[in-house]
Amino acid sequence: MMFLEHKYTIDELVNRCKAGERKFQELLYKQFASKMLGVCMRYASDKMEAEDMLQNGFIKVFQKIADYRGEGSFEGWIRRIMVHSSIEYYRKHHKMMQLVDLDEAVNETSANPLATAKLDASDLLLLIHQLSPGYRIVFNLYAIEGYSHKEIAAITGITEGASKSQLSRARSVLREQIIKMEGKKYGYAG
């Protein structure tokens, strides 16, 4: 277990962070940084952007840690903050949902049977990075985080209908790109 390597339990770390102790804030950061950067990487278009999201997210974590009442897992709580921080980042830095490129896809691909098992995480991450921010956010929230369209509408401020259509477009772009990638990788055309 990872926790055994540390002198402090998560509860202890959280309590000391509530008291604003810098040393424990750093320990907590080290405990969760790589997992949470993994979350941010799915929302970002590259690692630099993901690290900005991570930094903003952790600042929020330490500012709000007093509100954490121990309901649900701490990891789940910190992860939700990272997701919100990532979306917030796009609100600030891009005109988020308007960034959807209309030329991008829409033509439904009738995909071939795929040897998807051969695609590894970095391949799929690359595909996600190539999506426009609007598609990427909705696809992440729905397919990976497991939010409903209603929840996505509440988080992002777009309508439920827009969320559904963005998800559908995102899926078709991903399908198309998977086929291309498979073709490049294994030498047959989609």
Binding site: A33, S34, L37, G38, V39, R42, L119, L124, L125
Partner: peptide, 9 residues
């Protein structure tokens, strides 16, 4: 593939 993704900051 991506849910448990980790990356070193």
């Amino acid at each position: 593939k991506l849910d448990g993704l980790e990356a070193e900051p």
